[in-house]
Design a protein around this nucleic acid. Structure first.
Ligand SMILES: [Mn+2]
Ligand SMILES: [Mn+2]
Ligand SMILES: [Mn+2]
Ligand SMILES: [Mn+2]
Lengths: 216, 216
DNA sequence: ACATATTTTTAGTTTTGTCTAAAAATTAAT
DNA sequence: ATTAATTTTTAGACAAAACTAAAAATATGT
């Protein structure tokens, strides 16, 4: 399994999550910043290896073994992100890039030991669940802040957009996972919200609210 | 800098250490388990990039910038080996293989933080020195056990052969870095030695003795 | 339904790193 | 000093992963 093959499988897994299962060539190309023609080539190879089902002009969907590879990669990625934050004191906006490299290291023992060192974390620094050795993970109940009503409250458990820009914005405004958030007001004109976060009152745009998850 | 380029530079650095500086095509090919023709190609490319000097039919030697790349790679390799042993409780015979992968991760911050987490170690699990950020490292005085005289003693500070087979042999015979070793007898017939290691008396072959370093 | 637009695939290159087989240079032996 | 052996380089090929440009299939709009 090459780095590139692994990256394709991970991309397809993520794209399949919020679609009907079949993923298009163009969607994969966009996600991986490559050309559709390159995707066609790679997808043929992965189908050949039994990692995905491919129907010409239609799209691909992971087989069970393809999904296993993807989940293992995601497990490694997220464990490394936890390591970088917890043990090396990286900030949550810096870890993704490095984890993209570390996730490809091949050593089952390494991951098991890392998991133990970190005391078997269930979530990564962005609130995303970490699959266990069998690819199983908690599918935590959560909803977008933008879809909640005035008066409701909850704990911030994840971000939808985990780009460095957005994460740094949250840092600047002292919004972090684990914070208690209550919706005080909704401005009908632009959908912006006034929140009470850990005692502080703060106003955020609809854009921000639609990228924050609270538990439910 | 690709993984492959880095591996060539590291190999050339190590081969240059115990030679006169110029390293032959065949020696590199042996070390990297490739063919001489492949080495010629790669060596031309590295010369092009100013990382080594190459004279046809003669050999190569690293330039200063090539040596810097090699030393950075060695620094990363050895720091990861310390991490694997100290933090993840790998045994010293298991770390090399994984470190060969980890050494290629590109992130200066990662290495600095790792260095700090490990409290700036000066030696790796096999007793080899770890270069600092500027490529400087302590060149510790040491000598092969096989070249010492009866009656002399010292502390075991390194191994010459760091193959898993040899390291496991040392484990089985409870010989470890830091042990106090005194030479009690030398058998003239085969050069084997009787040692006093941390109170225990043990006999080892010449082969073993010529792969153990004591301080001096 | 038919023309147009979009998506996807094919065909043909490129780059990187490897290989084999053969030629050239260097080194060793008689 | 030739000849023979070894080392090193060249020439040509291949697999992986990407690209561009053009063709084919599918989807859309009137
Ligand atoms: Mn990530
Ligand atoms: Mn994450
Ligand atoms: Mn090593
Ligand atoms: Mn080592």
């Amino acid at each position: 399994m090459t780095h590139s093959e692994e990256n394709y499988l991970r991309a397809i897994y993520h794209l399949g999550r919020d679609g009907d299962g079949y993923v298009s060539t163009n969607a994969i190309a966009d996600r991986l910043a490559t050309k559709p023609s390159s995707v066609t080539d790679m997808v043929k190879k992965l189908a050949e290896k039994g990692l995905l089902d491919y129907v010409r002009y239609q799209g691909v969907s992971l087989t069970e073994s393809g999904e296993n590879v993807a989940l293992t990669l995601i497990r490694k990625h997220r464990l490394w992100e936890v390591f970088l934050v917890e043990k090396l004191h990286f900030s949550w906006d810096e870890v993704h890039e490095v984890a993209e490299q570390l996730e490809h290291i091949k050593s089952e023992k390494l991951i098991d030991k890392l998991d133990a060192l970190l005391q078997y974390p269930k979530y990564d620094p962005h609130g995303d669940p970490i699959p266990d050795k069998d690819g199983k993970f908690e599918r935590r109940e959560k909803k977008l802040l933008s879809e909640m009503n005035v008066g409701e409250a909850g704990i911030c458990v994840g971000v939808k957009d985990s780009s460095a820009t957005f994460l740094k914005f949250l840092d600047r405004h002292q919004i972090a996972l684990g914070n208690n958030i209550k919706i005080m007001e909704r401005e009908e004109y632009d959908g912006s919200l006034t929140l009470l976060i850990e005692g502080r009152e703060i106003s955020i745009s609809h854009q921000i609210a639609s990228n924050l998850y609270l538990n439910s």
